[in-house]
Each structure stands twice: as structure tokens, then as C-alpha cells.
Nucleic acid binder design. Structure first.
Length: 125
DNA sequence: CTCGTGACTTTGT
DNA sequence: TACAAAGCCACGA
């Protein structure tokens, strides 16, 4: 559990994003847009990214990647060390990562069922 | 309330 | 397949 001050820091829609990320099954990966959509923020891929940035280890961030094309996801982390660590974590869970850091969404992409629900969370502000 | 920012996504060339 | 530009949403100052 995060510390109280850190909790207050992420006391908005970010919490829903974290819950969504924790719901990603092991051995599967999801894109930022996917996470945002399930968390109730369609088109809020950048928000999910920001949430992940401040999460700092309290969520399995290695299961979330940026979408490079229609069929592949790509690790888009700036830090080469973090990218390598993410790739190692994914491979340890059974996910095959190509040389360019690409992952086949058709195989390892997270198929969540909350896709057709289209429920929008109310804005806090 | 307005403006700038970002670990993104989609479309076009 | 790879690069460039526009669009998207929420947060913080």
C-alpha cells in the first residue's frame, strides 16, 4: 500500500487506471489506450502514461506498452535500462518480445471483456 | 479559467 | 515499414 501522502497524490482517475493495470493477467500486455479505455478514459492514452509514470512500482507497469502499429505494440520508454528491464520481465512471464521491442498484440494483447460497456467515469473537476 | 506538458494514437505520405 | 503532423484527455501552475 502506498504511503498516505502518495495516496493523496493519485487520488483521482489515476486510481482507476492502477486498478485496470493490476487486472491485466500475467503473460499478457495492454496498450496505454487500452488501459485508459477500460479505466473510463477513451482517448486518454497520455493520461494512462502519466499515471504509470507516477506509479513508481506500485503497479505492474511492464505489462503496459505503447502501440506502434495495428498489429504490434512497442516499448516506448525513454530509459534504455527501464526498457531492457521491462523486456526481461515480459519474457519471464512468457511474452515473446522482438528485437525492436515489439510485441504481437494478436497473441499477447489483453482481451478484456469491458470493451463493449462504454461506461464513462464522471469527471472530478 | 487559460496555457503548457506528456512512458500516446491515428492517419497520411 | 518508417517518419511527420494533428488530435486526444487530464493534471498542474
Amino acid at each position: 500500500m502506498p504511503r498516505p501522502d502518495e495516496r493523496k497524490r493519485v487520488a483521482s482517475l489515476y486510481r482507476g487506471i492502477y486498478a485496470t493495470i493490476r487486472a491485466i493477467p500475467k503473460g499478457q500486455v495492454a496498450t496505454y489506450g487500452q488501459v485508459a479505455e477500460v479505466a473510463g478514459i477513451p482517448g486518454g492514452a497520455r493520461v494512462a502514461a502519466a499515471a504509470l509514470k507516477v506509479s513508481d512500482g506500485q503497479v505492474p507497469w511492464h505489462r503496459v506498452c505503447g502501440k506502434a502499429s495495428r498489429t504490434h505494440a512497442r516499448i516506448a520508454i525513454l530509459d534504455p535500462i527501464g526498457a531492457a528491464m521491462q523486456r526481461a520481465m515480459l519474457e519471464s512471464e512468457g511474452v515473446v518480445v522482438s528485437d525492436g521491442g515489439r510485441i504481437e498484440l494478436a497473441i499477447y494483447g489483453w482481451r478484456s471483456r469491458a470493451r463493449s460497456k462504454k461506461k464513462r467515469a464522471p469527471r472530478r473537476k
